[in-house]
């Protein structure tokens, strides 16, 4: 059995492919500079990794449109030097591969519109494609009741799961498949390489879309370097936690 599909959206490594669109989420450019400002002088190492991974993805699909599902940049209250530089060269890089770029606003994106303006892009709150509505997921939109699409795709959560055997613990990024009220819900992993994300087996979820009791019925699709590993439902994993988690 292959698990490449969630509600008709195809998993390609850390990205999702629907029709002619490729979706990635939570890049957080400028993370290192934010660390620098806190006195942690690690050099920049993310940008190259992100580009490298996208290059790999573009070698397997050839989309027309790329959708960035929120949190292109990291800093809340300003645009740092690194963010300007990396975001712009990132968009330049994307333009070599796709016709169209859609930016969706995340909670870290208060100032992204200024970058977008400079490179002739708009920032949207959400983007609709057929039955899918793509939105960052840090809040439930005010017009939620008017949403017609039956499947929501969100980011924001940076989901991963930690697997343990003895002393060894490895975290693996994952997609989540579940329900929000009467709609289908897909949660995407982050497309950055600073950390794997937050362990859904250990930590409380952030997104209001995940604060519902049906979380235990969510299915988990781990992704490690283009391989997709289906872990079943969260409740099944929790049941065997003594052994593996």
């Amino acid at each position: 059995m292959k698990f490449e599909d969630i509600y008709g959206a195809k998993i390609i490594d850390l990205a999702l492919n629907i029709g002619d669109n490729l979706i990635i989420s939570d890049l957080h450019f400028g993370y290192e500079e934010a660390l620098n400002a806190d006195g942690i002088m690690v050099p920049k190492f993310q940008y190259e990794k992100i580009i490298g991974r996208l290059d790999d993805i573009f070698s397997t699909v050839d989309p027309n449109t790329i959708i960035i599902n929120g949190d292109l940049k990291h800093q809340f209250g300003k645009i740092s030097r690194q963010e300007w530089k990396e975001a712009i060269s990132f968009i330049d890089f994307l333009r070599e591969h796709v016709e169209k770029i859609i930016l969706i606003k995340g909670n870290h994106d208060n100032f992204t519109k200024f970058i977008a303006k400079k490179i002739d892009l708009k920032v949207y709150d959400s983007f609709s494609h057929e039955k899918f509505l793509i939105l960052h997921g840090h809040k439930i939109p005010k017009n939620y009741a008017e949403i017609k699409e039956d499947t929501l795709i969100i980011g924001h959560e940076h989901p991963c799961i930690g697997l343990r055997s003895g002393e060894r613990l490895e975290k693996i990024k994952c997609f989540l498949k579940g329900k929000f009220a009467d709609k289908n819900l897909i949660v995407m992993p982050s497309f950055n390489f600073v950390t794997e994300g937050s362990d859904i087996l250990q930590e409380k979820p952030l997104s209001p879309f995940l604060k519902n009791p049906s979380l235990y019925d969510f299915e988990i699709f781990g992704v490690e370097n283009f391989e997709i590993l289906y872990f079943g439902k969260l409740k099944q994993l929790m049941a065997s936690r003594e052994q593996f988690l």
Partner: peptide, 17 residues
């Protein structure tokens, strides 16, 4: 290797489930 470990764990979990 990380990937070997993850795969082995994955298999064990699936068997369990």
């Amino acid at each position: 290797e990380r990937i070997e470990f993850i795969k082995r764990m994955h298999q064990a979990i699936i068997n369990e489930i």
